[in-house]
Amino acid sequence: MSPSQSIARGVRPRHLIAMTSVLLLAAAVLAFFAGPTQAANSAWDDIRQELYGAEREILPAEGIIALEAPYRALDAATVPVTVTSTIPQTEDRYIRSLTLIVDENPAPLVGTFHFSPANGVASISTRVRVNAYTNIRAIAETDDGKLYMAAEYVKASGGCSAPAAGDAEAALARLGKMRLKQLGAWRPNELSEAQFMVSHPNYSGFQQDQVSQLWIPAHYVRRIELTVGEREILSFDGDISISENPTFRFFLMPRGSEVLRAKVVDSENRVFEQSWPIQVEPSS
């Protein structure tokens, strides 16, 4: 392992993001271009230590969640990831949170989704940046505090330093705009699927301006809160490894014609809010 690798690995993911030091960021970029690493497990060991401590048991995910990610990603800046929960969300037992991790990313912690029994099922689909050949992990925490982990290996590279394809100006003009899509028909107290999208460049801070020689600063969505009526339906604490225009598919149990509200806070503490009346059909 090169010295630059050990620098990047030794720093807590959160601190990596907060860093403004050009040198340390440069080291992190180099670290992660050092190529498909043989040290995948040591990256995970460090991440695990930081997030959960060495002692806490992490169980295999079979029977709790399943993780889907493409073995070979076409666009490293937009890698679709789906975590499917195989247990229902009940008051007696439910998944409290799902954490996504991309081992070899400069900021391995993609983020954590928080659920409640009101979701019906704690499944989530989103898109992440992948910067090197890596394991992607989903860790479910159930209400009793137990941890369950699923992992998939993904071949992709450059997703953090290459912005997603598209038009940066158009993306900035749309900053903070949101969409809510009701997938299929929603009925009261039945499992219903939604897609939430917020327009945000989610700059990783890993691109350099060649003229000024300055790093384009990270600018990303750090928290999303979705509520229906008074119920918190989904919240997300995130980081730069979520793709541009953060997008989630998730489930909920609507009670009737309520209002779904979204609040998004980014790393510059800008707050964006929007709400939508839910369209509900009569019970089946």
């Binding site: 450059g158 290459a162 940066a168 100006e169 691109q207 301006d209 384009i216």
Partner: peptide, 20 residues
């Protein structure tokens, strides 16, 4: 007019890609 910024965003990535 967008080229300097675009090269800044992608240059390092392309250089690494091609070097390999």
């Amino acid at each position: 007019r967008n080229l300097p910024r675009a090269l800044a965003e992608r240059g390092a990535f392309y250089v690494q890609l091609l070097s390999g």
